[in-house]
């Protein structure tokens, strides 16, 4: 493994959750969610019940990856914002600190201007949280915290049981 695994701790998760809830309220959005660049859903806020968030997360990451590919072909580092307009719903996708993707789905109760403004503010806060996560997981790795790791104890039997 590349050593760049994303590890989410309780404290940071709740900070992220607060940030997303705030953004959800401030933008009047339908759904707000955060995905890592590899397509894993990190957190969400809003009316997620009717949405297949797992699929949405993977497709969003694919979308960002494809757009990133186009950017590099054109000599750009990255296109940081994508916006798709639909008949009823719109989707605003932005890349944050090169590693996570913030997605806001909104309808006519909100506006693109408002979403852009609030996303910008939220992005700054989220970058800070993710920097903290990186620092923390590096620290945890260097300190020998293996006693607490739930994975050190995984047995072959545990793994086999998954496939029963």
């Amino acid at each position: 493994m590349s050593g760049s695994d994303l590890i989410m701790y309780e404290e940071e998760f709740s900070r992220i959750d607060d940030e997303l809830q705030r953004l959800y309220v401030q933008t009047n959005a339908k759904v707000v969610f955060l995905v890592d660049k590899n397509g894993q859903l990190i957190a969400s806020a809003g009316e997620t019940r009717d949405i297949d968030t797992t699929s949405l997360a993977s497709l969003t990451a694919g979308n960002i990856a494809a757009t990133g590919g186009i950017a590099r072909l054109l000599g750009e580092k990255e296109f940081t914002i994508l916006f798709h307009e639909g008949e009823k719903d719109n989707i605003h996708i932005s890349l944050i600190g090169q590693r996570v993707i913030l997605v806001v789905i909104f309808d006519k109760r909100s506006s693109l201007g408002l979403v852009r403004l609030r996303v910008k503010k939220a992005s700054e806060a989220l970058v800070k949280i993710f920097n903290d996560i990186t620092t923390k997981s590096e620290k945890e790795k260097s300190v020998d915290s293996f006693d607490e790791s739930p994975f050190a104890e995984i047995s072959d039997e545990d793994i086999d049981n998954l496939f029963r």
Partner: peptide, 15 residues
Amino acid sequence: MSFINYSSREINCKI
């Protein structure tokens, strides 16, 4: 890059 979430107690891996 696997994603380990201690908060929701999930491990996500990509194959």
